[in-house]
Amino acid sequence: MRFRTLNELAEIAVRDGKPIFRVMLEDQAAESGRTAEREWEKMKQYYGIMKEAVKKGIASEGGSRSGLTGGDAKRAFEYARQADSSLGGDAGAAMAYALAVSEVNASMGRIVATPTAGSCGVIPGVFVSSQERFGWTDDHMVCGLFCAGAIGYVIANNSFISGAEGGCQAEIGSAIGMAAGALTELKGGNPAQVVHAVGLALKNTLGLICDPVAGLVEIPCIVRNGFGAVNALAAADMALAGVRSVIPSDEVIRVMLEVGSAMPDMHRETAKGGLAQTPTGRKIAERLAGTSGELKEGDNDD
């Protein structure tokens, strides 16, 4: 890749007079040695899997493998269509779709990691709801995925994208930044606005810990995907309105690295702290250990 930072990415896009997604697509083809058309088809296939997961999750009343979660996407979707929903139907759909994909993930269904499975709901939530609202083609959405991928590539190589390394800010935070930047470009924003959207979004999740109850990617992961989709919409709107990330986005990414590196082990996906170690979180872990034979080690280390 010709870029290491968001600043370099935006500079290349401006200099070449191309949107960010095209810079990513060309660099990807150069890196893999495959044609741009082939890489495009692969991404399009991924988008198809995302749409299927939305459809499956939004219709499901069923639960996860552990029985802890399930059915919330459907509930949220139906509520958001009512006149008194605070978010309204469009943002409500983004939230519900994000919940839907995360619920499919928790039930060992097929999803695309964006950038991880724990944060797999944010991008489909934002993308599928926006596609419906604005009547965009699948190809337009694939442009957005390449743009999101370029942003995630920078974040992953300068900070991290896994909860075990950097807490939930690394997973949900990265996903929100990617979705916000991509939506900004999909709606006609310029490269500078895309980069501002990423910085604005990341600032709002700095410090978020990874504390899954019983070690499962369910509580609070699923609802954080729902919130994440709404935050991405907000960050894109701010950037398109001309709001700037005064602390440059590349510097915000550095802060994510700093904060995540300083985060104690108990708050990095080990289920040894945070929500996982509340009285209720412990009780749930004990109950699951008793009934399923799983989680043999998850809740007794401290």
């Binding site: 499919v104 999803i111 695309v112 950038p115 499975a117 995925l145």
Partner: peptide, 11 residues
């Protein structure tokens, strides 16, 4: 970053 296509729950 975008991918893999996978069976959940954790990448």
């Amino acid at each position: 970053i975008i991918g893999p296509s996978m069976i959940g729950p954790s990448s």
